[in-house]
Design a protein around this nucleic acid. Structure first.
Lengths: 213, 213, 213, 213
DNA sequence: TATGAATGAGACTTCATTCAT
DNA sequence: CATGAATGAAGTCTCATTCAT
C-alpha cells in the first residue's frame, strides 16, 4: 500500500519571492550587489538549473548564510535580478519628453533604437531572464502595461495623421511586435541588435502598420 | 547516438538526448505515448524543475524502469516531447501547395490563421516548451530555417508585386514577427489566439510591410 | 527596513508525521526494521538533537534515500519508533484475562510487576521517548485511555470491597501514580525497576489507597 | 568556569553552561531578565529546537551580541532558565517551619497544596523545562535530594505514629509519587492542578500509604 | 558595551538513475 | 521486458556563534 502524499509540485511550493531585508548599510548593499552580479554571471553561464545558491555565494565571495539573509531562496534571488534588470532597461528606455513631440517618422526609429540599445547591453542575460521570468510569476517582457499605455498615448496624439485604428489593440500589436522581434533577435541572431538595417526594417514595419493608406 | 551535453549543473552531467529504442511494437508505442502525455501534463502543471522522472512514470502508469527503457534520461524525455510537439505544429502548418498560388492578400491571412490555430491547440504546453527548449539545445521556435526559407520563397515568387526588399532579412522579419506575436499572445493574452481581430491585425501588419508604396 | 517573514517556529512547520509507504516485500520490511533499530540506538546515545537522518541511515546500513522512502522526515521516524515501542510495551502489558478474577491483593502486584517489567526492557530508550513524545503530538505515557479504562473497570468490579470512591478520578490517580513512579524510577534510579521492594511498595501504595477504612 | 559537555550532536559541540557574567548593574539585570523571559515564551511556543538565539534576542529586544554577552550559548541560556524556574518553584515550596510541627493529617495536604500551587503557576513552561532539563544534565524534578531529605526527616519525626517503614525508600516513593502526579497532571490534565478533589486524593493517597494498619 | 552583518558547518531532503528480482 | 527498492551526490537552507564597527 502506498500512502499518497500531497504532491508539492516544485521543490518548494511555498517559496517566498520577496526579498528578506533591504540593505541599509554600505556593507550590506555591497553584499547584495555582489550576490546579484554573481547570479547574473552564473545564470548566463549555467542556466537556471545550474544556478545554485552555493555557487552564487561562492562566486559572489560571500557565505551562503549571507545570501539567505537577503533572499529567502533561489527563486527570490533570480526574481530580484529580473526586477533589477528590467528596471535598468526601463531606465534606458525612459523617453525624452521632448522626443514625444517629434513626427512619427522620427519618433518611431528613435524608440526602436532605444529598445535595441537596451537589449544590446547584455543579450545573454536578457535571454535567460526572459526564459526564466514566467516561472517567477513575472511577465517576461520589459514593456508591460506602462509600455502599452505609452504607445497608446502616442497613437492617440498622432491619431489624425494615422489610418483608423483601435488604439488598444494596435498598441498591444506594436509593443509585442517590437518585443518579440527584440527577443527573437536576441535569441537567434544577437548581432542584429546592433545592425542598422534591422533597426530600419523594424521602424518600417511599424510605420507602415499605422500610416494611412 | 550519444551526445554529451555541456554540463548544466543538473543532477547528472552526462546526458543522452536521443531516444533509446524506437517503439516497434504496438505496446511500446502505447507506453511511449503514455509517457510523453504524462510528461506534457506534468510539465504544464509543475514546470521543468517540478517534473521528475518518477512522477512522470507514476502518472503514465508505468515504472521508472520502463521509462528509462525508452528514454535515456530526463532531458531526452523532454526533448522528445518538444520534438513531437513541434512536429505536430509543423504538420498543422504544412501549407496546402495550392495555397501558394493565391494572391498575397489571401495567402497571408491563411498562413497567419494556420499559425494561430497551431498555437491555440495547447497554449499552456506551448509556453513551457518554449521556455524549456533552449535548455535542451533546441531552437524554441516552430518555424525554423524551413519557415524562413518558405517565406523567402514566397517573397521571391511575389517579388514583382512588392516593394523592393532584401528577401533574406525580410523573411526573417516576417517569420520572427509572427512567432513573436504568437508567443507573446500565448504568454500574456491567450484568448487572442482565437480572436479574429488579432488575425486581421497580424495580416495587416505583414501585408503593409511588404506591399509597395 | 526589515520585512518580517512569517516565522515558522521549528525547522519544518509542516512536518508530516505519518509514514510514507508500508513495506510489503521482505526486503522493505528489513529496511524499515533496520532503520527503526538504528533510530533507537542513536536516540539513546545522542538524544533527539543528535539524531540526524544521515546518521540513522548510516548506522542502519542503508542510504538516506531509502530512509526517506519510508519516512518523510526525522519527526516521522521518531514518531514511528514511539508508536512501535509503545505497542510493544502494551503487548507486554496485555493482562491475562484469568488474572482479572483474582482478588485485588494479588491482582495489583501482578499488574505492577508487568508494568515494571515492561519498563525494565529498555529503560534508556524509554526515557528518551518519554521526553520526546510530547513534541510529536503523542501522549508520552504507555497507558493512555485504555489503561485508565481498564483500571476503572477493575475498580468497579471490586467496588463493594473498596472504600467509596469516584472511579474516574481514582482510575486516573492510580494509572498516573504508577506511570509517574515508573518514569521517575527509570530516570533517576533504574535499578529500582527490578527491585522487589519497589514493587512491594508500589503495590502497597495502591492497595492502601483503595482499601476501605 | 567552563565546562565541556558531552558532544550532543548539536551545532556547537563545546558548550559552556554557566552564565558569563553576573549582572551587577541594574541595566544588565534588566537585559538578562528580558532574555530569560523571551526564552521562556519561545520555548513554550516553539519547543527547544524552535528556540534560536537570534529569535530570543529579537523577542527580548536586544541584539544577539548582547545575548552572548550574558550567556555563553544556547544551552547555557536554557539551563539558566531551568535554574531560575526551579529556584522560583522551590521558593514557593519553602515550608513554613511552624508547619512542620503540624500533625500529618494537616501537614500533608498543605505540602501537596504548595506543590500543586507551584506547578499551576506556569504549567506550559513546566512541561517544556521538564522535557528539556535532562538534555542539560539537570535532573528534571524540582524536589531533588533536598526534597527527599525533607520528607525523610518528616517521616522520622512522625515515625512512632506511622506503620513500620524504611524511611529512605518511603521518602523516595512519596516524593516521586507527588512529582509524578504533578507532572502527569501538568501534561495531560492541567486543570486538575487547581482542582481541590485532586489535592484531596493526592493527600489521601499519601496518608494512607504511611498510616499504620 | 551594544549592534547586527557575516560566517560556514552541517542538517535536511530530493530525485535522476541503476539493478536485482 | 517490467518492476520498484535502493542509491547517494548534490542542493537547499538554518542557526549558533563571532567580530568589525
Amino acid at each position: 500500500m502506498v500512502l499518497a502524499l500531497k504532491k508539492t509540485g516544485s521543490r518548494r511550493a511555498t517559496q517566498r519571492i520577496s526579498p528578506r531585508k533591504s540593505p541599509h548599510q554600505a556593507r550590506s548593499r555591497d553584499t547584495v550587489d555582489a550576490i546579484l552580479r554573481a547570479t547574473a554571471r552564473i545564470l548566463v553561464k549555467h542556466g537556471y538549473e545550474g544556478t545554485t545558491t552555493n555557487r552564487v555565494a561562492e562566486v559572489a565571495g560571500v557565505s551562503v548564510g549571507s545570501l539567505y539573509q537577503y533572499f529567502p531562496g533561489k527563486e527570490a534571488l533570480v526574481a530580484a535580478l529580473v526586477e533589477r534588470h528590467q528596471a535598468e532597461m526601463l531606465e534606458a528606455l525612459k523617453p525624452d519628453p521632448a522626443m514625444l513631440g517629434l513626427p512619427l517618422d522620427e519618433l518611431v526609429p528613435r524608440l526602436c533604437e532605444a529598445m535595441l540599445r537596451a537589449h544590446a547591453v547584455n543579450p545573454a542575460l536578457d535571454s535567460v531572464l526572459y526564459e526564466v521570468a514566467p516561472r517567477l510569476g513575472k511577465p517576461p517582457t520589459v514593456l508591460r502595461d506602462t509600455g502599452v499605455a505609452l504607445v497608446k498615448a502616442i497613437l492617440e496624439i498622432h491619431g489624425p495623421k494615422l489610418r483608423p485604428l483601435d488604439p488598444d489593440l494596435t498598441a498591444f500589436m506594436v509593443v509585442k511586435t517590437v518585443e518579440g522581434l527584440c527577443h527573437e533577435a536576441t535569441l537567434s541572431r544577437p548581432e542584429l541588435l546592433k545592425d542598422p538595417r534591422f533597426l530600419d526594417e523594424m521602424s518600417e514595419l511599424l510605420l507602415r502598420y499605422v500610416r494611412p493608406g
